[in-house]
Amino acid sequence: MVLEENNTDQRYKIANREALIGVGLVMFNFVWWFAFAYGLGGKNPSEYTYVLGLPAWFFYSCVLGFIVMAILVTVVVKKWFVEVPFDEEGEVK
């Protein structure tokens, strides 16, 4: 049980927080994807509206949704992710 001795390790706190951010992002991504796909796409195809030639549900869910996620990930990583050393001796340095 090697994990225990380093439980207070500052690096682990950072790691835990970043893992939770990952979970948060994926939940946001899912809601966005699901809401647009089935919210707008559930209608009869004859009532569809179109964006850039694509059905609106598809554009918002898959195209815009992807762009939003790419921007979110970039911002989150640049703002909140902390650089930590990975090696043992890194703590002392």
Binding site: L3, Y12, L25, V26, C62
Partner: peptide, 26 residues
């Protein structure tokens, strides 16, 4: 639509395994 669920792998894997996995495996 189904295939786009894979976008999440791009960030999720590295964030969740993340630094702790990197430190522990070393």
């Amino acid at each position: 639509l189904l295939a786009m669920t894979q976008v999440s792998t791009g960030y999720f894997v590295l964030m969740v395994l993340g630094k702790k996995f990197a430190i522990v495996t070393r």
